[in-house]
Design a protein around this nucleic acid. Structure first.
Length: 553
RNA sequence: GCGCCCGUAGCUCAGCGGAUAGAGCAGGUGCCUUCUAAGCACUUGGUCGCAGGUUCGAGUCCUGCCGGGCGCACCA
């Protein structure tokens, strides 16, 4: 019996009591089912009686007793106690709990899937850095989080399109091009230009391709086109090495050249939210809660950066996105109100159609000291540097395992270690042990029964087995919660603190394969089935985070 | 000054209104002729920043303070 099934059973019990006239309350759509912290409080606890007390106008313990009496009659429920102010402490029968292992193996990778977000099309944009330099450490966090979130939303039933928005239009690009030209001419980079060592590399690469570039009519245009193209390739290649690809690589320039920026502005003007002032065109975002109005077209006639955002949002909606999600760094927190206002100006609901995830920054620690970053000197730490230092799996896991609301410290020494104190190693090692046992069984010629239905899962009564089964039962709920809250770190924490930990403890206390002349028993098969379930859950869970689960290490 | 985020064990961090607040690291102590000890167990360590409020119940929600991070352009 899974927690979801138990929740439905509780709702059914309440409905029955209402129908029988023993309880007068609106029947809830779902009943809370939690894993109690204290194991003495059973496998699961429900506060349903506490929540019904008020609408029923009766003491919670009295309601709890009514529900408990009915719940005890359910198959799979071994014991129900009323505790404290009115909690129901529920213990499942061993066979009902053991069925979880069979269910996981039967479902395979589908076990983690749900349908909570089915029917909605999500557009998820992340990273979206200017093509004026390598992918930075901060962007790396959004690559890891965004990619994991996309996988998790899909696992929750959503249709997801991932997008990268190249800001390849406007002043920053011009500065980049001027920097390339300056370097190519052997002159110092302009004050407002780009100073990293890579600028030299790109400039040389442009010259290698177009040796006469500097003598052309418009050298800056050649350096702009070729240089930006090279940065596109560099960004895509860094992300690909990180295991991140996008469904759509969107170019800001397309919005301008195709006229969609103009169309979006016209549409807002027709809706009455645009005005002209001192030669510039403004969106009256203050009508929708912004601090000040924002320019769409500058008095120079050049479109302001914001106009691209406006047209891009409209474009996403017109391409079918019900929910537009954008992951941004904390340095863009100031954009939230104008973006929300723009959504409202289009007549959409800013609380529904646009979601901005503002994530905090990343700091690196090496030898116990912060790794210093100086953008000015160009010594910005990059995604490539991080991958080189600790590898893709550790990098992705480290970047995804904390709430995006918290600034993140990544201790390079810790994440490079091949030991259990390294969280990603710990989780992967649990999966390796599962694989190792399956290999051992195969080498012994130990074949599972023809059907998993013939495995007696009621034999899984050891405390470590029960703990592990309860952990396995949580996976679908954890994935659903991570999707609904847009918090992939919940899945990582579940994997290391609950699933892998339970598996390691199970490994330590419960021998599976027979030694020497020991007999193969029904328990052997039950445990092999349990390990199969664990491996599936770990591989699936790590997969949703974009982290591999090796067969051996 | 205004806005957003954070403040939980010595350190790094979990904890979508539930019972006696958790994990890893660091400190202390045990367990390897046994499926990978690349592991496990035990143990030390908390005024959940402070003060009010909401309610059956607050680390969690609200208000105000204190401390830290990031923003506050006709830049992108």
């Amino acid at each position: 019996m899974t927690p979801d099934e138990l929740s439905r059973a509780l709702v059914g019990v309440v409905a029955g009591l209402v129908e029988a006239g023993e309880l007068t309350v609106p029947v809830p759509t779902a009943a809370p089912v939690e894993r109690p912290r204290n194991p003495e409080h059973g496998d699961y606890a429900s506060s349903i009686a506490l929540q019904l007390a008020k609408p029923a106008g009766r003491p919670p313990r009295e309601i709890a007793e009514l529900v408990a009496a009915q719940l005890r009659a359910q198959t799979g429920v071994q014991r129900v106690d009323v505790a404290g102010p009115g909690f129901l402490n529920i213990t499942l029968a061993a066979d009902a709990l053991g069925e979880v292992a069979r269910a996981v193996v039967a479902a395979g990778p589908e076990y983690a899937r749900g349908d909570a977000l089915a029917g909605l099309h999500w557009n998820l944009e992340f990273v979206s850095a200017n093509p004026t330099g390598p992918v930075t450490l901060a962007s790396a966090r959004w690559a890891a989080v965004g990619d994991a979130l996309a996988r998790i939303l899909q696992a929750a039933g959503a249709e997801v399109t991932t997008e990268y928005y190249f800001n390849d239009h406007g002043a920053q690009i011009d500065r980049f091009a001027r920097s390339l030209v300056a370097v190519a001419q052997g002159q110092p980079v302009p004050e407002d230009g780009y100073h990293g060592a890579y600028v030299e590399d790109v400039a040389q690469a442009v010259l290698a391709k177009e040796p006469d570039a500097l003598a052309a009519d418009d050298p800056q245009e050649i350096f702009r086109t070729l240089g930006v193209g090279m940065m596109f390739d560099a960004v895509r290649s860094s992300l690909a090495a990180f295991g991140v690809d996008f469904d759509v690589w969107f170019h800001e320039d397309d919005l301008h050249s195709s006229g969609r920026v103009g169309q979006a502005v016209d549409r807002l003007r027709a809706a009455g939210h645009v005005y002209d002032f001192e030669g510039a065109v403004w969106l009256r975002t203050t009508d929708f809660g912004d601090d000040k109005d924002r320019p769409l077209i500058r008095s120079t006639g050049q479109p302001a950066y914001f106009s691209g955002d406006v047209a891009y949002y409209l474009d996403k909606r017109e391409r079918g996105a019900d929910r537009v999600v954008i992951i941004l760094g904390a340095d863009h927190a100031g954009y939230v109100s104008r973006m929300k206002a723009m959504v409202a100006a289009f007549g959409d609901d800013p609380e529904v159609n646009l979601e901005l995830i503002i994530g905090q920054l990343v700091n690196l620690i090496r030898d116990g000291q912060p790794v210093k970053m100086s953008k000015r000197a160009g010594s910005v730490l990059t995604l490539d540097d991080l991958v080189e230092a600790i590898g893709v799996d550790a990098a992705r896991y480290a970047l995804v395992r904390s709430s995006t609301d918290s600034t993140l410290e990544v201790d390079l020494d810790l994440w490079a270690r091949k030991a259990s104190e390294n969280p990603v190693f710990y989780v992967q090692y649990a999966a390796v042990r599962a694989a190792s046992i399956a290999r051992g069984a195969a080498e012994m010629g130990l074949a599972m029964p023809a059907s998993n239905d013939d495995v007696d899962v009621s034999l899984l009564t050891h405390p470590r087995e029960q703990e592990l089964l309860l952990a396995l039962a949580e996976l679908p709920r954890v994935v659903a919660a991570a999707a609904e809250l847009r918090e992939p770190h919940r899945l990582a924490r579940y994997l290391e603190e609950l699933l892998a930990r339970s598996a390691q403890r199970f490994f330590d206390e419960c021998r599976v394969l027979p030694r020497g002349d020991e007999e193969v028993t029904p328990t052997t098969y039950a445990r092999l089935l349990l390990w199969q379930a664990v491996r599936i859950a770990l591989v699936t869970g790590l997969g949703l985070l974009g982290v591999s689960a090796p067969e051996r290490m």
